[in-house]
Design a protein around this nucleic acid. Sequence first.
DNA 1: TCACACATACCGACCGGTTAGTCTGTCCCG
DNA 2: CGGGACAGACTAACCGGTCGGTATGTGTGA
Lengths: 197, 197
Amino acid sequence: MPRTTDGDGTPVPQRLLAAATRLFAEQGYDRTSVQEIVEAAGVTKGALYHYFGSKDDLLHEVYARVLRVQQERLDAFAGADAPVEKRLRDAAADVVVTTIDNLDDASIFFRSMHHLSPEKNKQVRAERRRYHERFRALIEEGQREGVFSTATPADLVVDYHFGSVHHLSTWYRPDGELSPQDLADHLADLLLRALRP
Amino acid sequence: MPRTTDGDGTPVPQRLLAAATRLFAEQGYDRTSVQEIVEAAGVTKGALYHYFGSKDDLLHEVYARVLRVQQERLDAFAGADAPVEKRLRDAAADVVVTTIDNLDDASIFFRSMHHLSPEKNKQVRAERRRYHERFRALIEEGQREGVFSTATPADLVVDYHFGSVHHLSTWYRPDGELSPQDLADHLADLLLRALRP
DNA sequence: TCACACATACCGACCGGTTAGTCTGTCCCG
DNA sequence: CGGGACAGACTAACCGGTCGGTATGTGTGA
């Protein structure tokens, strides 16, 4: 039997990624030592450097995974067959729900991006931009149709909305009385209300 | 002549604080060494530890300064003699302008808060809450008067707005075509539009 | 079917370098 | 001449990453 899955059923690379995600979110990238990560995953440094090129590489993998998932979901909502108000509302609410579902990823995202090497940072920013642009296109579509106000430039509206989404990890408490879906509905509502002509 | 001001006219503690602020914002708290700070301020470690108890202490001072300034400004705007819509709009726009004026402080704030020791973190959160509550009271006042919609709970609206304000340091580029005041007007407008009954 | 060759997965000691913080001493002002 | 304001050498603790080594599995040719 290959060691890759021993002890626990999940393969070692995934276990390392999961441990790193949790620890990065809890203590920050710089404050998490490679030693801590491998201990949490039940392996040693040899295993980590067998699968990943560097600690930085590990962080990059976390980002790549999140970005991939979010882009896929946005594309699905934005490309649906429905009026633009509904598509925007659904997309805006969905990003809130999935962000809450992965609050660890979110806090890593907005706190640790500058720890990535310049080239990887550039790569992440490029993917991030693609995401924003898809969202912006949705708003511009509604503005052309006349269902959204043109008082504010679309890209500003996008940054306004995502600013608060990114900050969810700072103030949202899962044990509060507001369910993720309720919160998502409220935030999407705020966006749509701000866009009323 | 006391050494306290030599070389440059500004006192050593302030020079240390200014250097630390810039470096923390540029590279993050953990990636900035005490050695770098003292070199940038033109002194040595002896001076730093003469005035500050620890590196953590230095970060806390940065926070304290920002919070004090922002609270004062908010109190002034919120307590003015004007209809609540105008007071909220002015306060919402002002926080954007002053945040842009001190983008370094802002990026430290939202990236490095978790580096503070638990007790200092608690202290900062408490002051932060006071600030949010003053802002929320303004919204609730308008809701009672019937000039703001009650569709969304006031504290959610506050978090929505400040989420994007905190994220200004991520995406706002001072060399862009949008002046700080223009941007502030747009963001305040988005808030007020979302609150229309 | 057995033996040999090789690859993969992982261990853990180790290294060069960095860091926050300390401590002793010096200088200068009142 | 006493004490505040620093200088700067020093230390003890880590940290990311490397590397030689081992155990297990897999493919292949006779």
